[in-house]
Amino acid sequence: MWVYEKKLQYPVRVSTCNPTLAKYLIEQYGGADGELAAALRYLNQRYTIPDKVVGLLTDIGTEEFAHLEMIATMVYKLTKDATPDQMKAAGLSGHFADHDKALFYHNAAGVPWTATYIQAKGDPIADLYEDIAAEEKARATYQWLIDLSDDPDLNDGLRYLREREVIHSQRFREAVEMLKEERDRKKVF
């Protein structure tokens, strides 16, 4: 069971209408290392991971949905006042033709989200290493987005999200160590 709270995890502000930035940001909405992929990856892996780390995957997966809502809010705020001409100038005419201002799960290049972005190997070490890699890739993506953006208000939210990836990676690394300790202990009789 999940419960929705009618608030963002962290405040999202944007300085001006800027559909070009929205086009880049959609990478973290429907891209390979985006928040949707992250949430679905962890919440799917948790059913077959050892009990010791089920809670961690559940809570991080849940936090990813809060981040997905933050990214959606950024995209919404950056595009809500844009004219069709501004959307076209930002390279979003293809998006506009299909979706108007609606959000959609695709990456910055317009490729729709696919389940092939995520893995579930059923091997706890393989799954957790995938999760660590996903967090590091998401961290790098946030850095590239900050480098591309000239909006100080937006960057405040992006920096927050970048730091969360660092924490998640750290916790997953600790989870790997916990499982390795348990595995090594079992060898001693």
Partner: peptide, 14 residues
């Protein structure tokens, strides 16, 4: 709530 989320994740491994 940020403190709570951060500590929740921390407590999973500590």
């Amino acid at each position: 709530d940020f403190v709570i989320v951060e500590l929740a994740l921390y407590l999973h491994t500590h």
